[in-house]
């Protein structure tokens, strides 16, 4: 049971005193209306007495300790009024969002169409299991892993490191418990993610453009590019 706030008790006492001094029944009636909403509580009062009709001299019916009002319950403001702490500024999805999405989709299609008119997808000679091209490269997004193969045992490069990376990536929200999303509060998270992304980006770049025959290091501007998308 919640404690009855101090000021309400005080006000009730005052009202009681006032009613007693007046000897009439109309004082409590004014009480219910001005419950302080800002104080965090609203008081639900029930008049114990019937509305005092006529200025009868007969004393009003009172409670055990001479109460003319009864406090039924104290209710916290938030449980009745759903007050949003910060009102959210919203706009209609149509046209504001849909139009942007439509334009983005259109631009994307246009880009792909024009790019596809001028640049053909590679189609090399028919697959021949007896003729290994030199170098043989994986698709570009796996070239980071292939690059690791030059440094580590295949199990470490092909399974352990990507597996660990993937698990850490999946668990990122459970590892990073920092509730803030402001960049200045997240230096460690942003720093480590940037290092992670750059690590793979650099490996993919090296694997794509700086590896030639025999997986040897080459400079693309000197020896040419050994890379097909």
């Amino acid at each position: 049971m919640t404690e009855i706030p101090e000021h309400l008790l005080k006000r009730a006492a005052e009202a009681r005193a006032k009613a007693a001094a007046k000897g009439g029944g109309d004082a409590p009636a004014a009480e219910g209306g001005d419950a302080p909403a800002g104080g965090g509580a609203a008081v639900a009062t029930a008049e114990r007495t019937a509305v005092a009709t006529t200025g009868a001299a007969a004393p009003l019916a009172t409670g055990p300790a001479g109460h003319t009002q009864r406090l039924l319950t104290v209710v916290k403001a938030g449980s009745i009024q759903d007050v949003r702490a910060t009102p959210v500024d919203k706009v209609h999805t149509w046209p504001h969002l849909l139009l942007a999405e439509f334009v983005a989709a259109l631009a994307c299609t246009a880009f792909l169409l024009i790019f596809s008119i001028f640049v053909n997808a590679p189609l090399l000679a028919l697959a021949n299991p007896n003729l290994t091209p030199n170098p043989s490269k994986a698709p570009w997004y796996f070239l980071g892993l292939q690059e690791l193969l030059t440094m580590f045992h295949p199990m470490v490069a092909g399974v352990t490191i990507p597996g660990m990376g993937l698990i850490v990536l999946i668990l990122a929200p459970y590892i990073d418990k920092n509730p803030s999303n402001r960049p200045e509060d997240r230096k460690v998270a942003i720093g480590s993610m940037t290092i992670f992304l750059m690590f793979w980006a650099v490996l993919v770049m090296i694997g794509s453009f700086f590896r030639g025959p025999g997986q040897n290091f080459v400079f693309p501007w000197k020896d040419g590019i050994f890379f097909d998308l």
């Binding site: 189609l123 490269k137 994986a138 097909d228």
Partner: peptide
């Protein structure tokens, strides 16, 4: 099923 796909997939599946 050209030389590019065959050998890219060979490299990839060898790793797995």
């Amino acid at each position: 099923w050209d030389q590019l796909s065959l050998w890219a997939v060979t490299v990839g599946t060898n790793m797995m």
